[in-house]
Design a protein around this nucleic acid. Structure first.
Lengths: 126, 126
DNA sequence: TGATGGAATGATGAATCCATCATATCAGTG
DNA sequence: CACTGATATGATGGATTCATCATTCCATCA
């Protein structure tokens, strides 16, 4: 359930991130961000993602619910658009963060990825 | 489970957002972002959030797992720090986005918030 | 109006996440 | 070493989310 407008901001913020917390939705948003006008019809998203129609629709509903996208109906096709430039900014920063993080800690990844609390004592020389 | 380093980027990205998708974790990150050196000991976070110790620790573990924070132990106190400036950028952009979104659509909120498909006919006057 | 195609909704197990409790580790002190 | 304070981990119901299926809605065209 979406928090009401007077809910504490950190709760609303958590909900926004929750809305982005799914690979399919990330793909959808990136397709929109890359498309001209930051918008595209469902048929396009359907073709690009290869998702089942109702599944895609469900994710679009989630994005709509979180006000991350808006939709407009033209004839019997529906076009979706990013609701705010902040959305693509979030994606861009996430990408920077992740690439940086992945590149900067390749070695550490090997050690600490998720091994059982093996927090190093001496650090590898190589 | 965390995706391996060669998982598609959109999946890793979704996982990052999943790591942020909880009010308690947002609060923790904002406390860290606001603290000097973007770092603070667990005891501070404990006092500020009012969470139960083990609960807080669990969220910290999640953040660690997603590499959003790093931890250092000094004596028997542990200090946490944001792992990357991108994290506070994400929070800042989310705030901008949300404030903008809330301010810009107060009226729509009333109509469309999450009422059962009650797509307006006349709209409430008051 | 009836038929067609695109899109959305509802309902259902399976999987995941959260909060709580109990227990364990770690570092310092007596 | 036993003890204490600080932090972390494990296990457990209860809630939330996901994927799939069937059904419904909406606009156009015959």
């Amino acid at each position: 359930m979406l928090p009401s407008a007077q809910a504490p901001l950190y709760e609303i913020k958590a909900n926004l991130f929750k809305g982005l917390a799914h690979p399919a939705r990330i793909r959808i948003l990136e397709l929109l961000a890359a498309a001209p006008g930051e918008s595209a019809p469902v048929s396009y998203l359907l073709a690009e993602t290869g998702l089942e129609a109702s599944h895609l629709s469900q994710h679009l509903a989630t994005l709509r619910k979180h006000r991350v996208v808006t939709s407009v109906r033209s004839a019997n096709a529906v076009t979706y658009q990013l609701a705010h430039p902040g959305v693509s900014q979030l994606l861009a920063i996430a990408r920077t963060f992740l690439l940086d993080s992945l590149a900067g800690s390749r070695e550490q990844l090997r050690l600490a990825q998720q091994l059982p609390a093996d927090h190093l004592a001496g650090g590898p020389a190589s």
